[in-house]
């Protein structure tokens, strides 16, 4: 300990201009860490507000650099932040002084330069650092604290994520099935063309009239009342998504009139099945 004493005095001498300069610079106000109660390894945060006139800044090259300032003191980080009438510097010091008894340490002040050429000093401070182990504690291998424990990875966040995304997939699949009238939702009333298209696909090939009838039922259901050829423009106004197949609808209704009320009994059903399929696709938003 006797060896350290002259150095402390020297550090004290170095630090002497600090407070004096800080008084000469009324613009510098320091918010120093508490003076007592520090152990080795502790980080001491010092906030310094430097008042600056308009247009003047601190020369960034003159700021203290993070480094080992002394064998017992590291400057970890220097950050700056603009404040209304100047700049606020935050200096993070780390104390590595292994004290045998509570002892005052002196953090030196540091010179800075402003862009208008004037010099200033960032003030230093004093703090008392205390020993962490008793003075009389033996320095033997059994005093060494044991190795750290092994850490396992907690799998729960990913498990929760999997459960949530699986649930979202299920919900969106069910919503899609409902929207597309798949599976248990296939009998939905407001998908008449989809139902008709499926029924038509299942009807025997010879039953041309049956197919035509099924599609007419679907039109009636979609229109809300019986739809005849003359009402077709009104239907298309109400359901504009069917506009692209308007011509085919017109042809279909004309053929139906001929088949049911005219003489052309042997009329082939032509494209009733493809038309029903296309209508079903439009109805489900897939065309």
């Amino acid at each position: 300990m006797r060896r350290a004493a002259p150095t402390i005095a020297l550090i004290g001498l170095l630090a002497l201009p600090g407070p004096v300069a800080a008084q000469a610079e009324p613009g510098i106000r320091a918010e120093n860490p508490h003076g007592y109660g520090w152990w080795l390894g502790d980080v001491l945060v010092q906030r310094i507000r430097v008042g600056l006139p308009e247009g003047v800044a601190i020369d960034p090259a003159s700021l203290p650099k993070p480094r080992a300032v002394d064998y017992w003191l590291d400057l970890r980080e220097v950050t700056s932040r603009e404040i209304p009438d100047g700049i606020e510097l935050t200096l993070r010091w780390q104390n590595f002084y292994s004290a045998l008894e509570p002892q005052a340490r002196e953090v030196p002040s540091a010179p800075i330069r402003l862009t208008d050429g004037t010099e200033a000093h960032l003030p230093g401070f004093r703090f008392v650092t205390s020993p962490i182990r008793p003075l009389a504690a033996p320095s033997t291998p059994d005093q060494l604290l044991p190795d750290p424990v092994y850490h396992l990875i907690d799998p729960n966040p990913n498990r929760i994520g999997l459960a949530a995304s699986g649930l979202a997939a299920l919900v969106s699949f069910l919503a899609l099935a409902w929207h597309q009238a798949w599976g248990p939702f296939r009998r939905r009333a407001d998908r008449p063309f989809t139902r008709a298209a499926r029924l038509i696909a299942r009807l025997p090939g010879a039953d041309a009239t049956g197919r035509r009838r099924q599609l007419h039922r679907a039109f009636d259901a979609a229109f809300g009342r019986v739809l005849i050829g003359a009402d077709l423009p009104q239907f298309l106004r109400a359901r504009p998504e069917f506009q692209p197949v308007a011509e085919r609808l017109g042809a279909f209704f004309a053929q139906s009139d001929a088949a049911f009320f005219g003489r052309a009994q042997d009329l082939s059903d032509g494209d009733v099945a493809p038309l029903a399929r296309d209508l079903a696709r439009i109805e489900r938003g897939r065309r």
């Binding site: 080795l40 390894g41 590595f96 292994s98 962490i132 182990r133 320095s139 005093q143 060494l144 604290l145």
Partner: peptide, 10 residues
Amino acid sequence: AKVNLDLAMR
């Protein structure tokens, strides 16, 4: 780490 560093420092 503080305790063991103190021990090493002694």
